[in-house]
Amino acid sequence: MKKTLLPLALLASSSAFAADYTDGDTHKNDYKWMQGNLMYAVDELPGESSHDYLELEFGGRAGVLDYYGYADVFNLTNSDSSDKSGADKIFIKFAPRISLDGLTGKDLSFGPVEEVYFATLFNWNGGNDDTVNNSFWGLGTDVMVPWLGKVGLNAYALYDLSAKDWDGFQISTNWFKPFYFFDNGSFISYQGYIDYQFGAAKDDFTTSSNGGAWFNGIYWHSDRYSVGYGLKAFKDIYGIEDTSAFKSTGFSHYFAVTYKF
């Protein structure tokens, strides 16, 4: 039997994983994947920082739990000349979602919506309480979109774990679309995400009430490796208003080499 060479991230976005759990078998669509990405960012915003980092990325499904996350380690050689020298070395994102279809045993799909979730998202970095320490709480869906296929779409309210206060909202979406296949089974994909925050209260740190990022990646994939380039557009990212003194709106470039475990 010929290998499909499709990564599990792609399988998760395909129609092979239906949302029908009315038979009570919540584990029939279980899967997991993990990979290591050696990355280099060029003019990353805010601040136009160029730097290397290692990203350990994972995702999967376990019963009613759908999950995705990664851990970034910056300035791998601890170089004094790195843009990340003296900064926190770790950033972690974890996004667990609980299927309401699986939890209730009912088919909650309608129209293009294939599955409904209680959705959460956590962002932490390696610093103290004055650094990123956020949580997001809301509803999520898997939506079938023309050409792109299954797309994750989540709406959250943000709870700042450091300030102990609610502070705005976020809309997030992500996709993975193979669009060109080679004879050996490898393929090229268009993959990316959008995170857009709004309704944040302005203070000494949040100078814009809205802003976000849009990542567009073109990647070549085989069964064990991938190589890719990503263009990321920023608009007042992290609620920081763009100024001549500190740039938070514009474009950054990302280069990645990946090994799939």
Rank of each mutant, 00 (worst) to 15 (best):
L5A: 14
L6I: 03
A9W: 11
A12L: 15
S15M: 14
F17D: 07
F17I: 15
A18C: 04
A19R: 12
T22I: 05
G24V: 12
K28T: 04
K32R: 14
M34G: 12
P46R: 01
S50I: 00
H51N: 06
Y53P: 00
L54D: 08
E57C: 03
G59P: 03
R61C: 02
V64K: 01
G69V: 08
K84W: 08
S85A: 13
G86S: 12
A87K: 15
K89G: 12
I92M: 10
I92S: 09
T104K: 08
T104M: 04
S109T: 01
G111E: 05
A119M: 07
A119C: 03
N133E: 05
W137Y: 13
T141C: 10
K150T: 12
V151P: 02
V151Y: 08
L153V: 13
L153H: 04
N154L: 00
Y156T: 08
Y156E: 13
L158A: 13
L158T: 12
L161I: 11
S162I: 00
I171L: 14
W175D: 02
Y180G: 02
Y180Q: 03
F182D: 05
N184E: 09
F187Q: 05
S189N: 08
S189K: 02
A200H: 11
A200K: 12
F215P: 07
W220T: 06
H221D: 09
L231C: 03
A233E: 13
D242K: 06
S248I: 09
T249I: 11
S252N: 10
K260G: 03
K260R: 13
